[in-house]
Design a protein around this nucleic acid. Structure first.
Length: 805
RNA sequence: GCCGAGGUGGCGGAAUUGGAAGACGCGCAGGAUUCAGAGUCCUGUGGUUUAAAGCCGUGUGGGUUCGAAUCCCACCCUCGGCACCA
């Protein structure tokens, strides 16, 4: 029979709901703070899944722990309700998101209470609340004001299923991040935000963050900074010059051709008569396919222009080609071909029988086989620069070319500006007006929020226009400047807009005058611990850092970075070790588990499964182990109540409980919840045949509380404690009980364990121990007539007798 | 191809400042309780044809060391990310 978890959980959830404003409400400016943040969910309609439970339980354990440690804990929750997930779901269910989303939120909140999460609900926020998105729009206007927002007709990624343009970050392997459809390229007039202006700082400031290395690396790669040189090549018979970008100036003597991207404006201008037709043809063909689709093609293609450039150092003529393996959107849209040391250039040269000159080789006098050939080798076939190492050569050649005005240092990034327009209904309206007289005019602050109108038909049109375009009542407006007739911008903001600053609003959620009070921001920022999925590594986490830096530059937030420590919870797979999905039928629903075993079992099992950050499969049997453990605790509690031993007299138990306090505290702080639970189990196994005092057991119950709050609270009150456990102090361990009086010494012979011996700590003397050990029968038997070479005595733990062979 | 993380029983995983490999849990086997089952409790559980002892064992092969899952070198495999970024 299970312990009455249903009754217990219901009972305490009621008490907590009633007292929420007291127990979990973070008061401003009160002592030492800690800000523990979850990535807030999209209330999509499927409800909380076990992945949410994993992350949210982790932060709940931390919050409960730090509250008991005496910290002022800010642990809020809210709803990222704008955007595609909610909208797509609403379309599928044929319900307006405006009426549908609040219902979902209610359900999510109910589920969160069902698993006993200790959020400060007084700080709840919702990105679709006009009082919230008023400030999202306000911040957008600040960016507009500072010249970070611009409109551009550009080829963008378009999702044919979601019927909207997407940012580069939202395209994962050529597919829509949300629905998995292959994206297409469309030319649309879109608002862009100049995130590239922050590229360097976004890169540099990563250093000071306590984030998982892989996430930092993903951001570094995404920003993709390359330092090199721009070099001008003169063209024979023309006044034009071709500028290329390279990071490998040391290979310049290996240049045997130049390649232009098909979009390059010089292509047709320098094509010779005999080649013109071919060139025109090639370009036309190439441009039909957007860059993204060209990449996947295996075969190298290209066409010769008939023109030649002059090598700036050798004066030799090198042919100028056109090929779509050169991207117009990166660097200068033109490259120097070094087939000796670049695999793509090599493939190209092979295909079109172009010259290949190796210019990097082994160090002079060294055998070629024992050195790394690529990267930084030594120059060969490079005239005055021969035998220099690559690094030095880049410097020297750079200096020389700069002196002659042919080259200059340049830095390029992979990062592109943030495409900010969405052709969808369910987002923050962009607060701009198009006036035939004044052009683009921003709304004034007092006109915010610009509310999203209620509509009947909100489905995406697919024409590149937003559904808002059809609501002429809303679209037609007056120009804020000249008061003449004008039209509103009808595209909406991307889903990421609201999540860029929500952690700031929690700090002062009801402020009507500012997005948050400065003093409060100063007190609570930065976020100390941020927990969420790794899928946001170059989406939300990059945008939010940028947004935060922008606010920092305006003096509106006190820190350069928003999130100091980041932890990614690992994915939970289905029992079949596959990713959970409806189509596979391997989805575990938290509600079912709660019904069957209770919330405490669910919480604790998810923490016990394995390391918090690892991918791990759900084990339908494994959860029984945790449920049995909680049952055992319940039964032992009843026994202890009957026994009525007040003070702890058993020294062994004192040692164990003190060790446990130390272990659990350290493990919680390090997100090692699985080993914390293991050691609690070991403790319970240890005391199960002993009589434990109430004093000791109450300490244990406090340790259990962050993990299984309902059961712990019930046991706590069962022993007549009136105050809620939330207000109790976390137990402290006493060093004197932990110190071992006896030392178990392992005896090894030639590194293999042969025996062990227990020694008083005070009797640790090498000679004495040596005698003791060598006289033991068992040891004598092993040594027999072997000669002892030496004896190693290590760390009061091991004695190793080494024999001569 | 490049970057990052990782390979430990039948399974999830412990131990990583070099010092008893396999904690804890699941599963499995045997026993107790029971008319029976469920549940609970006890015992065992890396391999080595049976007990003790021994021997072998942390992806593979080498190395350093009194001693290696842990450090070094080479290789194999798995997972995650990026991918014509010059």
């Amino acid at each position: 029979m299970s312990y009455p978890f249903k009754k217990i959980e219901k009972k305490w959830q009621k008490v907590w709901a009633k007292n929420n404003y007291k127990i979990w409400h973070a008061k401003d400016f009160k002592g030492k703070k800690i800000y523990i943040l979850d990535m807030f969910p999209y209330p999509s309609g499927d409800g909380l899944h076990v992945g949410h439970v994993l992350g949210y339980t982790g932060t709940d354990i931390l919050s409960r722990y730090y509250r008991m440690k005496g910290y002022n804990v800010l642990h809020p929750m809210g709803w990222d309700a704008f955007g595609l997930p909610a909208e797509n779901y609403a379309i599928k269910m044929k319900k307006n998101p405006m009426t549908f989303v609040p219902k979902n939120i209610k359900r999510y909140k109910m589920q969160m209470n069902m698993i006993g999460l200790s959020y400060d609900w007084q700080r709840e926020i919702n990105t679709t609340d006009p009082e919230y998105y008023k400030w999202t729009q306000w911040m957008f206007l600040k960016m507009f004001e500072k010249g970070l927002v611009y409109e551009k007709l550009a080829p963008i990624n378009f999702c044919p299923s979601c019927k909207t343009g997407l940012a580069n970050e939202e395209v994962i392997g050529g597919r829509c991040e949300r629905c998995g459809s292959k994206t297409e390229t469309k030319y649309l007039n879109q608002w862009h935000i100049k995130i590239t202006a922050y590229a360097d700082r976004l890169l540099e400031d990563l250093e000071e963050l306590n984030w998982p290395e892989n996430v930092k690396e993903m951001q570094r790669n995404w920003i993709g900074k390359s330092e090199g040189y721009e070099i001008d090549f003169k063209i024979v018979g023309y006044d034009y010059k071709i500028t290329i970008f390279t990071t490998r100036l040391d290979t310049i003597f290996g240049v045997t051709f130049l390649v232009l991207a098909p979009e390059h404006p010089l292509c047709l201008k320098i094509a010779k008569e005999d080649y013109y037709f071919n060139v025109e043809n090639y370009i036309e063909n190439a441009l039909k396919k957007p860059e993204r689709e060209r990449k996947t093609e295996e075969e190298v293609t290209g066409v010769f222009t008939g023109s030649y450039a002059i090598h700036p150092l050798t004066g030799e003529k090198v042919p100028i080609w056109i090929s779509d393996y050169v991207l117009f959107t990166y660097g200068t849209g033109a490259i120097m071909g070094v087939p000796g040391h670049d695999s793509r250039d090599y493939d190209f040269a092979k295909k079109f029988s172009l010259k290949i000159i190796p210019v990097i080789g082994p160090e002079k006098g060294k055998e070629p086989e024992n050195l790394p050939y690529e990267e930084y080798g030594y120059l060969i076939n490079s005239f005055d620069y021969n035998d220099l190492d690559s690094k030095t050569a880049i410097q020297k050649i750079g200096e020389e070319l700069e002196k002659r005005g042919i080259a200059k240092k340049a830095i390029y990034y992979k990062l592109r500006d943030w495409i900010f327009s969405r052709q969808r209904y369910w987002g923050e309206p962009i607060p701009l007006v198009r006036c035939p007289k004044c052009g683009i005019v921003p709304l004034s602050e007092k006109d915010l929020p610009l509310k999203l109108p209620k509509v009947k038909n909100y489905e995406p049109t697919g024409t590149g226009e937003s559904p808002l375009k059809n609501i002429s009542k809303w679209v037609k407006t007056k120009c804020p400047k000249c008061k003449g007739p004008a039209e509103r911008e009808t595209h909406t903001m991307p889903q990421w807009a609201g999540s860029c600053w929500y952690y700031l609003r929690y700090i002062d959620p009801k402020n009507k005058k500012q997005f948050a009070d400065k003093k409060k921001l100063k007190y609570w920022l930065p976020v100390d611990i941020y927990v969420g999925g790794v899928e946001h590594a170059v989406l939300h986490l990059l945008y939010a850092r940028f947004w935060h830096k922008f606010l920092y530059d305006l003096g509106l937030v006190p820190t350069k970075e928003p999130f100091m420590k980041l932890v990614n919870q690992g994915l939970i797979l289905g029992p079949d070790h596959e990713k959970m999905s409806k189509s596979r039928g391997n989805v575990i629903i938290p509600d079912d588990i709660v019904k069957k075993y209770g919330a405490d079992t669910l919480r604790m099992y998810e923490m016990f499964m394995g390391p918090f950050e690892d991918v791990k499969p759900w084990d339908t049997q494994g959860i029984l182990g945790i449920h049995r453990f909680l049952n055992k605790i319940w039964i032992i509690s009843k026994k202890i109540k009957k026994d009525k031993i007040k003070k702890e007299k058993d020294n062994e138990i004192l040692t164990e409980i003190n060790k446990l306090i130390k272990k659990v505290s350290e493990d919680i702080e390090n997100f090692k919840f699985n080993t914390a639970i293991s050691s609690m189990m070991e403790f319970v196994n240890f005391i199960s045949d002993k009589k434990v005092s109430i004093e000791t057991w109450m300490k244990f119950v406090k340790l259990l509380f962050p993990f299984a709050p309902h059961l712990a609270q019930e046991i706590w009150s069962m022993f007549g404690n009136k105050k809620l456990l939330d207000y109790e102090k976390w137990p402290e361990y006493e060093e004197k009980y932990i110190k071992e009086k006896h030392i178990k010494l392992i005896i090894q012979i030639d590194g293999k364990k042969r025996d062990e011996i227990e020694i008083e700590e005070t009797a640790l003397d090498f000679d004495k121990i040596k005698n003791l050990v060598l006289n033991r029968e068992r040891i004598k038997k092993f040594i027999k007539d072997k000669k002892i070479d030496k004896i190693i005595f290590a760390q009061n733990k091991i004695i190793n007798i080494v024999t001569k062979s």
